[in-house]
């Protein structure tokens, strides 16, 4: 057998949260669930959530799936904030304790 540059673990093993200098935060009261942030995230760090416990601008939107940022892998590139048509993703300075 030959040696192959394939690793037994997926890239999930490499958390990239410490790469972040700014952290995107979604204002769910303004988010219309268009999922444009999910579509544009270059690192697949935004997921759909169906648990339904997020604030929403109205009852109809509250029933839709909401975008959730995975802060273990988000590198803070800011693409989501830039693309958000409602301007409801804010980049805040990352604080390390």
């Amino acid at each position: 057998m030959v040696m192959v540059p394939v690793t037994d673990v997926s890239s999930r093993a490499n958390k990239t949260d410490t790469w972040r200098t700014q952290k995107p935060v979604i204002d769910y009261d303004a988010c219309i669930r268009c999922m444009i942030c999910w579509k544009f995230c270059p690192d697949d760090s935004i997921a759909y959530s169906t648990d339904g416990n997020f604030p929403a601008p109205n009852d109809r939107i509250a029933k839709l799936e909401a975008p959730v940022i995975d802060y273990d892998y988000c590198k803070g590139c800011g693409v989501c904030a830039n693309e958000c048509p409602e301007n409801c993703i804010e980049l805040i300075k990352e604080e390390v304790e």
Binding site: V2, P5, D8, S10, S11
Partner: peptide
């Protein structure tokens, strides 16, 4: 191909190797 991409068994492809990683051994292989 034994190491083909298989969604039931996700693996890391084309990942990275520092100098102490397997880089040099892969080239020798």
């Amino acid at each position: 191909l034994s190491f083909r991409i298989d969604t039931d068994r996700p693996m890391g492809y084309g990942s990275y190797s520092p100098p102490d990683g397997p880089f040099m051994e892969l080239k020798k292989d």
